[in-house]
């Protein structure tokens, strides 16, 4: 137990120093925060443009899609805040700096995650949180223990699902190196997919983002359950409650990918 506490302290010290180092360049940090906020606002504006140009898309109105967008964006931003740094893995592999991680008596993934902390990503969380709050106010929601439970559950599972995508992508990077962009298809593609009603997807996308990379469980399916909107043909309304199953699946796949990638890694030499 003392061991765990000691190693936690080490991570905490590293993270605190990263946070301090970013906040100390005030002008740059402020511009970064504003930029991250603006990216989030623009992303919402796209949805606003689309849903005001046509009254409803895939059975969802603007008010309803705000819930989906808010929930998905908040979960993704939180996962990005903690795990987004995994994106830099190809750079570490190419430079050979990853080898250092293997020398320390801590899990490589834990070191990778804590090796940097992008505080500017907090700006993104604000957009998702705002959209979610507005969505909860403007929609006619039957408040109760079940509703709150479903919201908390789907936010937690959404976080786990997106975090798993980041780790899965990192594991695959050991094989891809120059093809790093490939994993964007399900990490950032997954974020984009999670903000859409799955009713508009062709079958291939349903399999991809409802099954293999289960981002449909992060926001769309729970919101369908919450609002009682019929989801994809033939699927039961209570499917939104199954987010933990999807999260568990995503974690298993991510864990396998990461283990597999790590075993494949032979070092950069030198």
């Amino acid at each position: 137990m003392a061991d765990v506490r000691r190693s936690m302290r080490a991570y905490r010290a590293v993270l605190a120093s990263r946070a301090r180092s970013q906040a100390s360049y005030r002008a740059s940090f402020r511009m970064d925060l504003v930029g991250a906020l603006l990216v989030g606002i623009i992303e919402f504006t796209e949805i606003w443009v689309l849903y005001t140009a046509s009254d409803q898309i895939g059975g969802f109105t603007l008010a309803q899609i705000m819930l989906v967008f808010g929930l998905a964006d908040l979960a993704f931003s939180l996962a990005d805040l903690v795990f987004g740094h995994c994106d830099n893995l190809p750079l570490y592999v190419r430079k050979g700096t990853l080898d250092v991680f293997f020398l320390r008596p801590q899990p490589v993934l834990a070191q990778l995650v804590t090796s940097d902390l992008s505080l500017r990503r907090i700006g993104r969380c604000l957009v998702g949180a705002t959209a979610l709050t507005v969505g909860l106010v403007v929609n006619d929601i039957d408040w109760g223990v079940g509703t709150i439970g479903l919201l908390v559950l789907s936010l937690a599972c959404g976080f786990v699902i997106f975090a798993a995508q980041f780790v899965m992508a990192a594991g695959l990077q050991f094989f891809l190196i120059n093809g790093a962009e490939m994993t964007n298809a399900f990490v950032y593609g997954g974020r984009y997919a999670a903000t859409q009603p799955a009713t508009v997807w062709p079958r291939a996308l349903l399999v991809l983002f409802g099954g293999i990379f289960p981002v449909a469980f992060a926001a769309y399916l729970p919101v369908s359950t919450l609002l009682g909107v019929p989801s994809v043909a033939g699927l039961p309304v209570w499917l939104g409650w199954c987010a933990p199953v999807a999260a568990l699946w995503a974690v298993c796949v991510a864990w396998l990918c990461w283990r597999w990638g790590l075993r494949h890694y032979r070092g950069a030499g030198g």
Binding site: N178, E181, A185, F186, G189, Q196, V200, P202, A204, L205
Partner: peptide, 20 residues
Amino acid sequence: AGLVANATFGLLKGGIMGAA
């Protein structure tokens, strides 16, 4: 890799825009 990412985004964009 770029093509795979492009195509995935294209399918997602095509789906929502088509529905709109």
